[in-house]
């Protein structure tokens, strides 16, 4: 069991260290390690993790580390309490590289943010980051989140309506984003 904990720690430390490019890129890395290399769970069980991560709050990297940590122990026949410890170890391991790296970078940035080279670099970066944000929202405007007029017209039009409501509520009326999320979720519960 100790060996399994060590393996979990090492695997998720590596995923935290080399997981570039956000949640979904990380997911495929975790899948490769957890299903392909270590056989801690089946592909079907892994798909469940992705689905659960999408329908619960929180970063996908944290969600899947927590779930894999638990499932890998219980699949190996250990009691749930050891599974919970596995969750804790995997989650800690995935955050640790970020903590070390970001601390170093934050220190550097705070010290040199007024240095001309750093300033010029960030002058170029800022407009590109706006593009990054635009791309992130464009990528999410897909059938999975909105359905399509052909597939399910009712869901599609309600989704577009909720999108416009949340967009205008946030942009024009500066409504609290959490309130908007809850309102749209409740509308979904009633209408979809």
């Amino acid at each position: 069991m100790i060996l399994l904990y060590l393996k979990l720690f090492w695997t998720f430390f590596q995923i935290g260290l080399f997981g570039f490019g956000g949640g979904y890129a990380m997911i495929s890395m975790i899948q490769g390690e957890v299903v392909g290399r270590h056989h801690w769970m089946t592909n079907g069980e892994f798909t469940d993790i992705v689905a659960i991560s999408q329908s619960t709050p929180g970063p996908i990297g944290i969600n899947s580390a927590t779930y894999v940590g638990y499932t890998s122990l219980t699949n190996a026949g250990y009691a749930p309490v050891w599974g919970a410890l596995g969750s804790l170890i995997a989650t800690f391991a995935v955050v640790l590289p970020s903590l070390i790296l970001m601390l170093a970078i934050s220190r550097f940035f705070m010290k040199y943010k007024n240095h001309p080279v750093v300033e010029q670099t960030f002058m170029g970066l800022r407009p590109a980051v706006i593009g990054l944000l635009a791309a992130a929202s464009l990528l999410l405007m897909n059938a999975e989140n909105f359905s399509t007029p052909g597939q399910n017209p009712w869901q599609f039009f309600i989704s577009v309506g909720l999108f416009l409501f949340a967009f205008i509520g946030q942009q024009v009326y500066k409504m609290n984003p959490i309130l908007l999320l809850v309102l749209c979720g409740l509308s979904g519960l009633l209408l979809l």
Binding site: A134, L164, A166, L186, G188, L191
Partner: peptide, 20 residues
């Protein structure tokens, strides 16, 4: 849960689009 999330998802997209 599924229906709640179907309503929530378009709002998530809108909240990402607004700050642009």
């Amino acid at each position: 849960v599924d229906r709640f999330f179907r309503g929530l998802r378009p709002a998530v997209v809108a909240l990402i689009a607004a700050p642009v």
